[in-house]
Structure formats: structure tokens, C-alpha cells
Design a protein around this nucleic acid. Structure first.
Length: 262
DNA sequence: ATGGCTGCTTTGAGCAGA
């Protein structure tokens, strides 16, 4: 089973890229972030034409998450938002069980500037996610948590670490919050498979950052140990970032052996 | 260098992103 995570930066602005890419990359499941659209206006039909069913938790203008699965793969036990969220909180989480894998798709708050209210909210959000996973799941289950974490886990995940040192996305408090989430029982799947490679998933639109490969790896796929055992490979598909009017994020993909699971 | 790009918003300057 091939699962992808992609911050599309507006699903409506990216619809052609998305449907073209689905045909090209052929994921069984794609988790999307920053769909930036009300549920009433979600492009269900376009995804259907591409061969995918979709569940979504969206809002106007900002945030929004969705999980699409190839027709024939049932999407079960859909859960939206963190426990304790209300109707007017940002839509940042959608989870579902597909082929026996619990898939939790997150758009972690950006945090804006270190020390601000949004930054504190980001740290709290990561802790709430950890608490919710720990309350709902055992680490022996096949659980996959993916999305835009807005945290670069380590120095290797940043092309210009000195420039980013102590800044939002790279601050020790964010890395500690992510570390605590991992300590519950998750593994950063790409890093486990590629311990020494500099691989990025986001490049700033400005200053020709992509051409210089001046990026950060902030889009992650975290898995429990039983899923890591079944993981064949994890990679970033940079091809979408080369298109006209791209998302600033590229998709991250994981191939999971199906013979051992389900 | 407080800019630089992009998408969204009851359309147009301001916001949020990262």
C-alpha cells in the first residue's frame, strides 16, 4: 500500500496538479493539508473522476485536511479534530482506518514567531496530539501519523541550519514537543530508511529557494514499529515542485508491505 | 534587507503561511 502526505496549499488552486499527480504517482491513499476550502465547496467530483473517494474537514480560506483513498479501499472510523476542539477551531486533523492502518493526518499550527501566542498554541497542539494518540491507541497497533508538522526534526533536515537556528520550525521547544510525540512509540520513517540523506519537503516561494534546493523537511510520516517493519521505502517526490504555480510543499510517500498486515 | 512569493478574501489591501 502506497500512502502519501501532501500540503497542497489550496486544493482548488492545485486541482490539476493533484489529479495529474494521482495518475502519475498512483498512491492508494493521499493525506492532504491546507485544502483551504469549506466542506460545501470541496471538489469531491474531481477526485471521484480521478478514482478516489475522499473524507475532509475544512473551513474557508485557511487550514483544512482531507484523506483520499482509491475506490475499493473502505475509509473507516473517520475522526475529525483533536479531542476538545470546538466548531470554531481550525480544522487541522482528520483520521481514518484504511486496510487496517490507522491513519492520522495533521496540519500542525505554524507558530508564526517564537514566544508568541501562536507559538505556545503550536506546542500545546503537539502535546494534545500525543495525549490523544496515547489514550486511543497502543504502540503495538499499525498507526501512521503524517502531515505538515511545521517542525524540522534535526539539523540534517535544514539546508541552512545556522540561519534557522532558534527560529520557528527549528526551535528546541518544537523539537522537544515532536520528540515527546515520537517517544510515545513512533518512528520518523524517512529518517529511519535514509539516516544520512539531506532530503527536504518544503522550499520558500521566494529567492529562488527551490532552484538552490534551499529547503526544510517539515512534512513527516511517523509510524509505529510494526509498520516500520513493513516499510519498503519512504521518499519525497520533488516533481510537483517543478511545475508552474506549484505548492511550496512536495509530497512525501511511503510504500508499506501488505502481505504482513491488514 | 521587516523585503522577498503565493492564495485567499463579499476585489483589494491585508492576512497567513514557513
Amino acid at each position: 500500500m502506497r500512502i502519501a502526505s501532501w500540503n497542497v496549499n489550496s486544493i482548488r488552486a492545485r486541482l490539476e496538479h493533484l489529479t495529474d499527480w494521482l495518475r502519475r504517482a498512483s498512491p492508494d491513499v493521499v493525506c492532504m493539508q491546507e485544502t483551504k476550502v469549506d466542506d460545501e465547496k470541496f471538489p469531491v467530483e474531481a477526485l471521484g473522476d480521478a478514482g478516489y473517494a475522499v473524507v475532509y474537514a475544512g473551513q474557508k480560506s485557511y487550514n483544512g485536511v482531507a484523506i483520499a483513498a482509491r475506490f475499493g479501499l473502505p475509509i473507516q472510523d473517520v475522526k475529525k479534530d483533536l479531542d476538545g476542539d470546538s466548531e470554531d477551531t481550525a480544522r487541522r486533523l482528520i483520521a481514518a482506518t484504511i486496510e487496517g492502518v490507522r491513519i492520522v493526518n495533521v496540519y500542525v499550527p505554524n507558530g508564526q514567531v517564537v514566544g508568541t501566542k501562536p507559538f505556545v498554541y503550536k506546542l500545546l497542539w503537539l502535546e494534545r496530539l500525543r495525549a490523544e494518540l496515547a489514550a486511543r491507541h497502543a504502540t503495538t497497533e499499525p498507526v501512521l501519523v503524517c502531515g505538515d508538522f511545521n517542525v524540522a526534526p534535526a539539523t540534517i533536515d535544514v539546508r541552512e541550519p545556522k540561519k534557522w537556528e532558534g527560529q520557528v520550525l527549528c526551535h528546541p521547544d518544537e523539537r522537544a514537543a515532536l520528540g515527546k510525540l515520537l517517544n510515545w512509540g513512533l518512528v520518523d520513517a524517512l529518517r529511519a530508511k535514509h539516516p544520512d540523506e539531506q532530503i527536504y519537503s518544503w522550499w520558500d516561494y521566494r529567492m529562488g529557494a527551490f532552484k538552490k534546493n534551499n529547503g526544510l523537511r517539515i512534512d513527516l510520516i511517523l509510524v509505529t514499529p510494526s509498520l516500520l517493519d513493513r516499510t519498503k521505502d519512504v521518499w519525497v517526490d520533488k516533481s510537483t515542485r517543478e511545475l508552474d504555480k506549484p505548492s511550496d510543499h512536495a509530497p512525501v510517500l511511503i510504500d508499506i508491505d501488505e502481505s504482513q498486515g491488514g
